[in-house]
Nucleic acid binder design. Structure first.
Lengths: 170, 170
DNA sequence: CAAAATTGTTTCGTGTACGAAACTTTTACT
DNA sequence: AGTAAAAGTTTCGTACACGAAACAATTTTG
């Protein structure tokens, strides 16, 4: 079943693990920074986004933090309970709820000096310009491949295509 | 505050987004594959791991799926309720709980022909050997930098170090 | 204009996810 | 042996996270 030669297989495994590491680390950092302000990770994200962009509708906010509306409703519920944000009906479109930072929320945003993503930006900045280009090029290639595979094999008939997919492993 | 020149900044942003895409896509694929077998993402992961490795203690399983014991307890509770696995006390060490696939669980594992990670392995395999080495080298470098920054700046005094960190952005 | 389709939000039910505390069994120490 | 420390698991409380259904306001259509 495994047709990759060992060293290649190890590379693949290590790359996957590194990507997973980078992602989970980003969440860990967010969480750690948030903890110091008595916030949760997602709450810190919301506070920082509202500070930078200004008021947003719930849907816009959901899109920014890549979560479903129903998830964000809960996050905002808890933040409103803590007095960090307020909900306001839009006068232009009364279906829309606008989320605004309160004074307390703004103060908190200021108190947290660093955005979680800054750590990654800083780390990436240690690469040479060429390395950065190369990284982006290769990651994009992988990304495109994943998208193609997903379209063909996962979204349609995983079962039928499984053998074929494994056949490509060599 | 932003000292990166635009093109570099865009590269950084794109790299971050690509990494986030690859990670979230991997969860989406897992979930989609799981859905077809009436499983959840983590449950599919557990079933596939047990199929390949064999029986594991709860702690070993937690480590494999990178989750806390308390999280896995819940996952196993639900899977046991569905008759996919059983808990057995280890005779060697009676503190230990061994998780075993039932016949139903094994059958399900067989029915799902492809492991979620296979998609990524396949995509990564489209890279040349040189590209793979280069990707791994660069990602490792980033990873090391992140670890170093985290040790120095996040785990200790984020507030004090924030300015300094931003200064490194150029 | 009125019914229908659409858009934005919330509610509900289920499943993670995590840390702290509680519990059980084992190991280490005196 | 007897107590203390450690290891493995579960319980508890809280916070996401998501999809489906419910609800409200707006826009589209006949």
């Amino acid at each position: 079943m495994q047709k990759l030669e060992p060293s290649i297989k190890d590379d693949v495994q290590q790359i996957l693990e590194t990507i997973i590491y980078l992602y989970t680390e980003s969440r860990r950092i967010t969480k750690e920074l948030a903890r110091r302000a008595q916030l949760t990770g997602p709450q810190l994200t919301v506070v920082k986004i509202l500070e930078q962009i200004g008021d947003l509708s719930l849907s816009e906010l959901s899109e920014k933090i890549r979560a479903q509306n129903s998830t964000v409703t809960g996050i905002i519920d808890r933040m409103e309970r803590e007095g960090l944000v307020v909900r306001e009906r839009s006068t232009a479109d009364r279906r829309v709820v606008i989320i605004k930072l309160t004074a307390k929320g703004s103060q908190l945003a200021e108190d947290i000096p660093i955005e979680p993503m800054k750590v990654f930006q800083s780390a990436l900045s240690s690469l040479t310009k060429d390395e950065m280009r190369e990284l982006l090029r290769i990651l994009s290639k992988v990304s495109k491949r994943v998208k193609a595979i997903v379209r063909r094999d996962v979204d349609e008939a995983v079962g039928d295509k499984a053998k074929e997919l494994e056949g490509q492993d060599r």
